[in-house]
């Protein structure tokens, strides 16, 4: 187990280095820069700006400085805003984190419920209904679902605020928009995982012992049946991050995704690379947690490793 964790951490460092390097060079190789204006600034001004951001140095020196910064999690100053990249992440990430956690909670709760229901009533009405709902969740793009939810629940029924992140109720619609896509996939994974599990011998043993049907399904079955869902958490979170770009735009939430998209338009290199490395670090740690979780859920995997 310890060997696994150390190995994964080493791998994670390599991944982070690759992300940082690729984004550093890709951004600099692209045409156009953050200080291109309609009217070119006087040469002295440009020189000052370049000096401030070390843009006058050879690229490799810039790269070395950048890597040294990344190692300390210091991404320097934004080139457009009077803030450091660290401040931007600290100010905006909490909104995205709340949105993401809430969305994932909705996705997992509803997805697992639908999936277990479908597996339990296999090939009957409940199954078909649950799978149709989950397919709709997968098929409707979030930039359609978001405005439709706003129209119905905010502008039509006046139940919930249409936009902005002020208080718990304003997170309900965006989190539902973001979560429903993953609810669909999680429901389908739970269903197939449960179908596989409920056929296993140890489930028959439990039934033979006289364990109640509810305990068989929710306690014995779900434990193994959830493994595909746990595997999916990494990709789902990765998807939530890119999904947040759309949802934060639709609902006017000042999260990190919104900030990131704005920085793309501004070509704000430090912010772009900084946020990318931040996302990558988060995902590396999350995937490590998922790997550890397997061992906790299924002792057979733990012993094998």
């Amino acid at each position: 187990m310890i060997r696994l964790i150390v190995g994964r951490l080493a791998m994670g460092v390599v991944v982070l280095w690759a992300v940082a390097t690729v984004s550093f060079f890709a951004l600099r190789a692209a045409p156009g820069g953050p200080f291109d204006e309609e009217r070119a600034a006087p040469p002295e001004v440009m020189r000052n700006i370049e000096e401030r951001y070390h843009l006058n140095e050879p690229v490799l020196v810039q790269y070395g400085r950048f890597l040294a910064g990344v190692a300390r999690f210091d991404f320097g100053h934004s080139m457009k805003r009077q803030q450091t990249v660290g401040e931007i992440i600290r100010n905006h990430a909490p909104y995205s984190a709340r949105l993401g956690v809430f969305a994932l909670t909705i996705a997992i709760t509803l997805g697992v419920l639908l999936g277990v229901l479908a597996a339990h009533r296999q090939n009957r009405l409940g199954d078909h209904a649950a799978m149709t709902i989950s397919l709709i969740g997968i098929s409707v793009p979030s930039f359609v679902l978001g405005p439709v939810l706003i129209m119905v629940f905010a502008l039509g029924l006046f139940w919930l605020p249409p936009a902005r992140a002020e208080g718990f109720s304003s997170y309900i619609l965006p989190a539902a928009t973001l979560g429903l896509i993953y609810m669909g996939t999680i429901a389908r994974l739970t269903r197939s995982g449960m179908l596989e599990t409920l056929r296993q011998d140890y489930i028959r043993t439990a039934r033979a012992k006289g364990v109640s049907e509810r305990a068989v399904v929710w306690k014995h079955g779900l434990r193994l049946g959830l493994i595909p869902v746990v595997t999916y958490l990494g990709p789902a979170t990765a998807g939530l991050i890119s999904g947040s770009f759309v949802v934060e735009k639709v609902f006017q939430i000042p999260g990190l995704g919104y900030s990131f998209v704005a920085s793309i338009q501004d070509r704000d290199y430090p912010v772009l690379t900084g946020v990318l490395v931040f996302y990558a670090t988060f995902l590396v740690l999350l995937n490590l947690a998922v790997d550890i979780a397997y061992g906790v859920i299924d002792p057979r995997i733990r012993d094998k490793r």
Binding site: L27, A30, G32, G234, I241, F260, Y279, L283
Partner: peptide, 14 residues
């Protein structure tokens, strides 16, 4: 496990 779409977004825009 990585939001590769993010890279596409950055690449398409730069």
């Amino acid at each position: 496990g990585f939001p590769v779409v993010v890279f596409v977004i950055v690449l398409m825009s730069v």
